[in-house]
Design a protein around this nucleic acid. Structure first.
Lengths: 121, 121
DNA sequence: TGGTAGCATCGACACACGTCGATATGTTCA
DNA sequence: TGAACATATCGACGTGTGTCGATGCTACCA
């Protein structure tokens, strides 16, 4: 196996090659189609949790963060942390890279910028 | 009673007079405090629903929208529409103005901009 | 005054979600 | 190989949430 392996980003229906701002028109501009709204809601729901927001803020503040460095600051059990990283990764907001025993997480600024754009940015 | 009455914006703990971007540091900059994360998650949760996103997009696309104009496009019952407008209003994202029999809704661009800012904008 | 219309609230239901212990998987090292 | 560790997955539990019918309340109009 390869030395470095990117964790799969799960089956979200929007993994176009160019990752940014392709979803939908800004929410402030024109009525959203039902499919656009569902997709955007899915991404926002991934963010709408205090633990995940703090997790993201920790990951985004560092170039890379190991899972084991999250359990302490977030004061949650290991399965809970794993659950939350998965939710954020499925939404494309963070990406996990498995190196040896550890999984290293980093934020996806493009995706976050796309969310801002969808919010009228 | 007065001719025009602004619907109360409910008891959200963040109704500072200046309404914009006072919550928390951008999520991409530094680890969020627990209280900041909880507050931001509450606001994002108000957005993280397809019906509410479409509702907001309709309201934000017009200067003013009446509740009765939402039932049709959103294909939901009247109590459901009322529920969703309340959630968005409690989050400060839209504001309702009651004139006569009708309640007129309009978006709060400052609040939406604050959300973008909290997301690293 | 009575009737109607717009909207909010209540109660109930089904479903989704956060949480964690137990367990499984996979990697490192002796 | 076997032991130890990091992480993922599973199963279960309690709680939160979207939905709607029924009901209540207020404003308008004849």
């Amino acid at each position: 196996m390869a030395e470095s392996l990117t964790v799969k980003r799960a089956a979200n229906s929007l993994d176009a090659d160019s990752d940014d701002l392709v979803w939908c028109s800004p929410v402030t501009t024109a009525p959203l189609a039902e499919s656009e709204a569902t997709e955007l809601a899915r991404i926002l729901a991934a963010l709408a949790d205090p633990v995940r927001l703090r997790l993201l803020s920790i990951v985004a503040s560092s170039p890379e963060v190991c899972s084991c460095e999250l359990e302490g600051p977030l004061a949650k059990s290991q399965p809970t942390i794993s659950h939350h990283t998965k939710v954020l990764a499925d939404a494309g907001i963070i990406t996990g890279e498995k190196r040896g025993k550890w999984t290293w997480w980093h934020a996806n600024p493009d995706r976050i910028a796309a969310i801002r754009k969808a919010l009228g940015g």
